[in-house]
Nucleic acid binder design. Structure first.
Length: 632
DNA sequence: TTAGGGTTAG
């Protein structure tokens, strides 16, 4: 009988007995009697393994007490299985208590199990301490010890010492030890050491190839990672699921949909389609390559969607700038009772910011606070808190944004930029500049984005003198070279204030003039102040730019500018040009946030399944007039 | 009785 079938038979027998042993209808002494009649050490160990795999701590603990009563604790195998059970249930304190059991001498099995436990529970330093103790008391490590000990190394010198030991013990060619070694060297960014271990092995299995592929990807050498992947195929090693997820993440980073699709072909051919992690990696790849339709097909085919599946499809929508899709899938996720995590929230918050969906954003912030998601091992999760701040700021809720800002202990330059930009975009120029001064007091070095915020604050508030001064000082005093974004802010500022001549002169003077946004800002100012002559010159400049840069916005702005000053013939001429060039006006898009979600509409869009009901509802609460309802 | 890989954001 082979190992597998032995295990199957054993589990069937134990299943029946176990039912009796766990029966709530029997008193403890009776259960103990059943146990003593039918159970031996092998059965206990088998059960403990099963409890460990299912993280069934209560039954594991119960079995532990029965084992003590039955006198099984002097057996080394019981100790090892118990340590393993407690480790897998994340109870390292209990595991250590078992390890120190006074009636038992600690052998290599017990040491291996406790070191593995600490490594799996992300406490490598504790694991390494047990290895040192093991050597101190003279217990010889074996080929099972080293894969864990290598992973337990927290410093380069420790790995080097262990690596030396492997040669002394003749374990330098063991594939389990070597793959741990390769991964640990990569953890310390020591690609050359990892490569040496890999190349000196006479036989390499798929795990080792995976380690090298992921290692190159980790240090940003994506092309080299692809070369290693190809070489692996040439050497006749078939990719496993882990290889597939790794290489898919590489092609997604490269935005290489063709090779990604080729991997999709391998997935189908090798029958990996049913593996959720593989499907999730495919969704991510198609999402990052902006092929949302393919991502959706994969997503719909997953039977048991996990957190990764939802996060991948939500992020895919966000990457394809489909904010509506992002929120739709987030709602679907909640309806499927899958709880969001930090990654879900960071993907969803920008969509809330885009739609100024304050209700949605506030709910997410509440969920985050209740579940302690704003914190990580470094204290406050500054990136997540920045996303919340940005959401509140973009929704115009500056008080809440400021509250989150104040509560974030480890603010970075982005935190300050979000607040400066938030105040600037809502017309609080003075508050934005005050934030900038506080930022300097806090000795945070401003960057290019800070000055976009500061200059746009000056522009919106009409602080001409200060705006000019900031532009002059930003390079000299702060070492930030003005870019086209900064000049656009200044031109916008001068234009809004009616200093059209100065704005035009500046636009002419600066390098990289072929920037549409810059000239559009000036065109907008010409329209605002009814200066169609200068507007015409600016308009012609825009038209001379590459036609692909010239969207419908500039044509519409120009025709409207001529309209404002009564030059209708020229306005019509622009409209005719639009027709000739086949430029279509992008339809207007609007949205409304109601209690049950966000509704997005574009002009003439009648595709919403509950359009009529929604219009009735909107009329009822005074959002729409009856004529609209009648036209629906 | 004990051991080595994976996917999602910024």
């Amino acid at each position: 009988m082979n190992q597998m079938s032995k295990k199957t038979v054993l589990s069937k027998i134990i299943g029946k007995k176990h039912h009796l042993f766990s029966s709530p209808f029997l008193s403890l002494p009776s259960r103990l009697l059943v146990f003593q009649m039918h159970y031996d050490v092998a059965t206990c160990n088998f059960l403990l393994q099963s409890y460990a795999n299912h993280k069934n701590l209560p039954e594991g603990k119960q079995l532990h007490s029965v084992m003590i009563t039955s006198g099984f604790m002097h057996l080394p195998s019981s100790i090892t299985s118990l340590i393993n059970m407690y480790s897998k249930c994340n109870q390292m304190e209990q595991a250590v208590l078992v390890f120190h059991d006074p009636y038992h001498e600690r052998n290599v099995f017990a040491y291996n199990a406790i070191i593995a436990g600490f490594v799996a529970n992300r406490l490598p330093a504790n694991g390494f301490q047990f290895y040192k103790r093991m050597r101190a008391v003279g217990v010889m490590p074996d080929k099972f010890t080293f894969p864990c000990v290598v992973r337990a190394c927290c410093e380069f010198m420790e790995v080097r010492k262990i690596h030396g030991c492997l040669f002394k013990l003749g374990l330098e060619l063991d594939m389990f030890v070597s793959s741990a070694l390769v991964n640990t060297y990569l953890k310390f960014d020591l690609m050359e050491n990892a490569k040496k271990v890999f190349e000196e092995l006479p036989v390499r299995d798929v795990v080792l190839w995976n380690a090298m592929i992921n290692g190159y990807a980790q240090i940003g050498h994506l092309n080299k990672a692809v070369v290693v992947f190809k070489k692996m195929g040439e050497e006749g090693i078939s990719p496993c699921r882990f290889t597939i997820t790794g290489i898919l993440s590489i092609f997604s980073l490269m935005g290489d949909v063709n090779n990604g699709r080729a991997i999709h072909g391998i997935v189908t051919k090798m029958g990996y389609s049913s593996c959720v992690a593989v499907s999730n990696a495919l969704i991510d790849m198609y999402g990052k390559c902006k092929h949302i339709e393919d991502a959706l097909v994969i997503f719909e085919m997953i039977n048991e969607k996990d957190l990764f599946s939802w996060n991948s499809i939500i992020s895919a929508h966000e990457q394809c700038v489909d904010h509506d899709g992002t929120l739709r899938f987030f709602d679907k996720m909640l309806a499927s009772r899958v709880l969001p995590d930090v990654i879900t929230i960071t993907a969803v918050l920008p969509a809330c910011s885009y739609f100024a969906a304050l209700m949605h954003g506030r709910e997410i912030h509440g969920y985050m606070t209740v579940n302690g998601l704003g914190k990580n091992e470094d204290g406050d999760d500054v990136l997540l808190n920045n996303a919340v701040m940005d959401m509140y700021a973009k929704c115009g809720c500056l008080k809440n944004a400021h509250r989150v800002f104040d509560r974030t202990s480890n603010k970075d330059v982005a935190s300050w930029n979000i607040m400066i930009m938030g105040y600037a975009m809502h017309g609080y120029g003075q508050e934005a500049l005050d934030m900038f001064h506080h930022m300097r007091e806090a000795q945070i070095k401003p960057d290019a984005i800070t000055f976009v915020g500061v200059l746009s604050a000056c522009s919106h508030a009409g602080f001409l003198r200060q705006g000019r001064s900031f532009l002059a000082r930003m390079e000299l005093e702060f070492g930030v070279v003005p870019t086209i974004e900064h000049y656009t802010c200044i031109i916008d500022m001068l234009g809004r204030a009616g200093h059209l001549g100065e704005a035009y002169e500046l636009a002419e003077r600066i390098p990289l003039q072929d920037n549409l946004v810059l000239w559009m800002a000036l065109l907008g100012a010409c329209r605002l102040h009814g200066n169609a002559d200068l507007g015409k010159v600016v308009g012609e400049k825009i038209m001379r730019l590459e036609p692909k840069h010239c969207g419908s916005g500039s044509y519409v702005l120009m025709s409207s500018m001529y309209g404002v000053v009564g030059r209708y013939e020229e306005a019509l001429q622009v409209r005719r040009m639009m027709k000739e060039q086949n430029v279509k006006k992008t339809p207007g898009c609007s949205w409304i946030e109601l209690k049950d979600g966000l509704y997005v509409f574009s002009m003439g869009d009648r595709t919403h399944p509950e359009l009529n009901a929604l219009i009735h509802c909107l009329c009822g609460i005074g959002y729409l007039h009856d004529e609209v309802m009648n036209s629906a």
